[in-house]
Design a protein around this nucleic acid. Structure first.
Length: 593
RNA sequence: UGGGGCGUCGCCAAAUGGUAAGGCAGCGGCCUUUGGAGCCGCCAUUUGUAGGUUCGAGUCCUACCGCCCCAGCCA
């Protein structure tokens, strides 16, 4: 849809659009704007996470959807105490990886320091800002409370010339950190706390990652943000809900000086995903407490971690799109994110075989010195992915959990006397179980049916189970890292009983050092993604070294057997499985309660 | 007890006064050389609650209830 189309009916076609896109469509239709300019404004003091992904998709998405529009990447770098170039680089990499491009429009709030300073001077000249000598505690004490108004600073009514002089001396470095601040003169009795004479500038004698020692006074967010938006010609300044209270302030600043454009702030609910946390403080605790290995530990909710884990950016974008934009608080189930990740991976990623917990199988009627190459389909979802050759020989590995000596009813895998299919290979029948002194199964003996080469029986004999396998002689050893959620609860409480330790999932990382992979993995490089058939999607980790592959499990496959097995107890039957009718009754009961 | 926001299925979400879309999850079935994928079906007599207006209300009005955010010289 274009703005022109919308104009023809005198209004915008907004059905199905979220509230922000509706506002934008209307602004375009009414002629208030002829293009959309948005910005994504991260502070370079940490890594981007899932929550940011949704803001990025919104900011850049809305620009991409409209003609002549654009989205700026602006680093909101007004606090040298916490900001570093390392984060600037990381954030740029993450945004690019997610699939967005800011073109020429890479900006920094620090680029506007001189202009911003000019606006502050103008406020002082107008009598709308003053230098306050109170210290931090005094300012806090005079701020009032949520229900009581604040009290005015004794320095509130200094003359403009005195304020100008003081502010100049602040800039010149004559005062120490915290000795003086510049405040707006608004209303100490405002019910919106943000309006009670907010601080515009504070003294911080610290080097800034871009401006170095040029400044020792730095602007605060509220003062800097709207002006930066105006300076860049931002039309719609999208931010999260917690800034809603600040909107009157955003507008107030813009009202006080002449700017070349008038941006509008619109707030939306930030995105949260179950079983994870995204606060910078919590992320830092995980990292510094050694609970994760790094900022891009695949269990982290950071984009860097998701990249390392193997999440495709298209999947994350699809997820954000599906979740939508609104103002009601969102806590999205992880399953929803995983669905979109799997959906992309299923279509795009080549299949391979690998055994994560190997059990040796000897095929007794297969000649000792023989080997052959069997053709296997690379991706049943994508014919163009072609086929590959997989070596087969007398000794193979199968997954330990694919064999049970005393199988429950619906267990379609290997058991004594039972015949199964080896994927892309042959039917095999288990003839003997070999155990060690402790009674643990250490090896299986099988026979194969040469007539079933490729996996079909000429006599039409059916087999229920298909197992993945790897030829022992040809196998590549690897380390496989299986991940579960970092936290046990949907909404982890790091400060509850037992603290962080109690909130963490003890099996968030399971390392399998003895995995065996088919030789097609020979040339695999870090970042490459595969599906290990019947197990899940995996990505080659950056910890890999030549001859020492490390695989991250991106996501498991949907596993209906796991559900049956779990729900039905050790024998796999589930007599208490509720019928549809019972389900309905259950639901009814719930509603009544 | 100040101010700002939000309440439609387990989780998201559409519906703009005309008789509750869709996705995820779940459940049943079909199909299957991945217990994957795919396909089919089921899953809100009702929108936080109570009143009211209207021929008609998730949408309008009133009152109440619940949840989130705000008292950094952070953003």
């Amino acid at each position: 849809m274009s703005a022109d189309d919308a104009n023809e009916n005198g209004g915008a076609e907004t059905s199905g659009l979220d509230f922000i896109r509706t506002i934008i469509a209307e602004d375009l239709a009414s002629g208030k704007h002829d293009k959309v300019v948005t910005r994504f404004p991260p502070e370079p003091n940490g890594y981007l996470h899932v929550g940011h992904a949704m803001a990025i998709c919104l900011d850049f998405g809305v620009a991409a959807e409209n003609a002549d529009s654009r989205c700026h990447l602006r680093f909101d770098d007004t606090n040298p105490a916490t900001e570093e170039t390392e984060y600037v680089d990381g954030i740029m990499e993450d945004v690019r990886w997610l699939g967005f491009d800011w073109g020429e429009h890479l900006h920094f709030t620090s680029d506007y320091f001189e202009t911003l300073h000019g606006y502050a001077v103008s406020l002082i000249e107008q009598g709308k800002a003053y230098v306050d000598d109170q210290n931090a505690e005094e300012i806090r004490a005079n701020q009032g409370s949520l229900t009581e108004p604040g009290t005015e600073s004794p320095f509130r009514n200094r003359s403009a010339s005195e304020n100008l002089d003081l502010f100049a001396r602040m800039r010149a470095g004559e005062f120490d950190d915290g000795e003086k601040v510049l405040r707006a003169k608004i209303d100490m009795a405002a019910s919106v706390v943000a309006l009670r004479d907010p601080i515009l500038y504070r003294i911080q004698k610290k080097a800034h990652h871009r401006t170095g020692d040029a400044w020792c006074i730095y602007p605060m967010y509220d003062f800097a943000h709207g002006y930066s938006d105006a300076l860049e010609g931002i039309t719609h300044s999208l931010c999260s809900l917690e800034f809603q209270d600040h909107r009157p302030l955003y507008d107030w600043f813009l009202d006080q000086v002449e700017t070349q454009s008038r941006p509008r702030q619109i707030e939306f609910a930030r995105l949260n995903v179950s079983h994870t946390i995204t606060s910078k403080r919590a992320l830092r605790r995980l990292f510094e407490g050694g609970h994760v290995r790094d900022w891009d530990d695949p269990r982290m909710p950071t984009l860097a971690a998701m990249r390392r884990r193997g999440y495709p950016p298209e999947g994350i974008r699809a997820f954000c799109k599906a979740v939508g934009v609104g103002k009601s608080p969102k806590l999205i189930e992880l399953a929803n994110l995983e669905f979109h990740v799997r959906q992309v991976l299923n279509k795009e990623v080549p299949r391979r075989m690998g055994v994560v917990d190997p059990l040796k199988v000897v095929i007794e009627n297969y000649p000792e010195d023989q080997e052959e190459f069997l053709e296997a389909i690379n991706n049943p979802e994508d014919e163009s992915a072609g086929t590959r050759e997989v070596p087969f020989s007398r000794e193979i590995y199968i997954e330990r959990e694919d064999f049970l000596e005393d199988p429950p009813k619906k267990f379609f895998r290997l058991a004594p006397g039972r015949e199964v299919r080896l994927r892309a290979a042959y039917f095999v029948t288990c003839t003997e179980v070999i155990k060690d002194g402790a009674g643990e199964v250490v090896e299986l003996r099988c026979t194969y049916d040469p007539a079933t080469r490729g996996g079909d029986s000429p006599d039409g004999r059916k087999v229920k189970g298909t197992l993945h396998w790897v030829s022992a002689r040809h196998a590549i050893g690897a380390e496989v890292r299986d991940y579960e959620t970092l936290f046990l609860e949907e909404e982890p409480n790091l400060d509850g009983e037992g603290g962080l330790d109690a909130a963490l999932n003890p099996s968030s990382l399971v390392v399998r050092t003895g995995a065996k992979l088919e030789p097609a993995f020979e040339d695999a490089v870090p970042g490459e993604r595969f599906q290990l058939e019947r197990l899940g999607y995996y990505c080659i980790d950056s910890d890999s070294a030549p001859g020492a592959l490390v695989l991250n499990r991106t996501a498991t496959l949907r596993d209906t057997w796991a559900k049956v097995a779990k729900g039905g107890g050790p024998k796999g039957d589930n007599p208490s499985k509720p019928s549809k009718k019972q389900n309905k009754q259950k639901k009814q009961k719930k509603e009544d309660g």
